[in-house]
């Protein structure tokens, strides 16, 4: 039962409020101001522009396409990651030789930065020197290299695969933690009742994992939606914005084209979308998820 000690409470959060306020909210305010201003190519504000930057977005067909791509990318990565991570967490929770090793190996993509992961994959998917092509050719499954990053379809498949692989460690470890908080008596009771693996999974494990699933899904959506390095390093949006997501498009608009105003408007729009998503999501799941939406 939390106590009412307003002064102590405020004092305890004060350092965090100051630090986060200065480091995060100051730039957010700057971005918000830019989104309502005329901004030159050095990101200097030159007067109020009203909603012009936002209106420009609505007539920007590339923006609408990239928005759709971003939703697709987020749903695909978070969805598949979750589906894959559940059995992975179940397996990691089993008692077997080499469990420690399996956990250690699974952590590796997490230990490396997104940028390093992406750079390594760019090399693996190289048009001429891809080791995957090399292997497939040696097995006589193909006789011409597949240019993985050269066309929309295979490029998206590659980008999503990498997105999934870097998201699995965090997701499966969180789910594993969730599993370990399921009292084992419950399992054993189910076994005695003759419930099989699937029955106990559906009726006991999954419902008990629900809270942790909700929190990890929410966090994954936010992180994946905003994940810059993977699409950027792999394709830079080529061909013709077809593999861009919103953050890479924002980066191009702002830094490659000097269009800081519309870019800031997009950033604000992403924020509104994510906020709306978290509110709706927490409403639907009716879960007072501890991530802040109470």
């Amino acid at each position: 039962m939390p106590r009412s000690e307003p002064l102590v409470g405020l004092l305890f959060i004060l350092p965090t409020v100051v630090l986060v306020g200065v480091i995060v909210f100051y730039p957010i305010v700057e971005t918000a101001l830019m989104s309502f201003s005329n901004v030159n190519s050095l990101a200097q504000r030159e007067g109020f522009a009203g909603l012009a930057n936002y209106q420009a977005l609505l007539s920007d067909t590339v923006f609408l396409r990239v928005l759709a791509q971003t939703v697709f990318w987020t749903v695909a990565v978070v969805g598949i990651t979750t589906v894959v991570s559940i059995p992975v967490a179940l397996a990691l929770n089993l008692n077997f030789h080499g469990r420690r090793l399996a956990r250690a190996l699974l952590i590796v993509p997490w230990a490396a930065s997104l940028m390093i992961n992406a750079i390594i994959w760019r090399w693996i998917l190289d048009g001429q020197h891809s080791i995957i092509n090399g292997t497939l050719m040696r097995l006589h499954l193909i006789d011409q290299p597949i240019i993985w990053l050269g066309s929309e379809g295979t490029a998206w498949a590659a980008i999503i695969l990498v997105g999934i692989l870097v998201s699995i460690p965090f997701t499966s470890f969180s789910l594993l933690a969730g599993l370990q908080s399921v009292p084992s008596e419950l399992y054993e009771a189910a076994m005695v009742d003759g419930a099989g693996f699937w029955a106990s999974f559906w009726h006991i494990t999954l419902p008990l994992m629900r809270p942790v699933l909700i929190v990890t899904t929410l966090l994954n959506v936010i992180y994946v939606f905003n994940s810059f390095p993977i699409p950027w390093v792999l394709t830079q949006g080529s061909p013709a914005y077809r593999t861009d997501i919103l953050v890479t498009y924002i980066y191009k608009r702002a830094f490659a084209e000097g269009q800081f105003g519309p870019a800031a408007a997009m950033a604000m729009l992403i924020f509104v979308l994510l906020l709306a998503f978290s509110l709706t999501f927490s409403h639907i799941t009716k879960e007072r998820a501890k991530v802040g939406i109470k």
Binding site: V24, Y26, P27, T31, I250, L274, S278, G292
Partner: peptide, 15 residues
């Protein structure tokens, strides 16, 4: 706190 996670660092660079 949740809001701080909704902005990609790329967006915050200028500020």
């Amino acid at each position: 706190l949740l809001v701080t996670q909704m902005f990609s660092p790329v967006v915050l660079l200028i500020g």
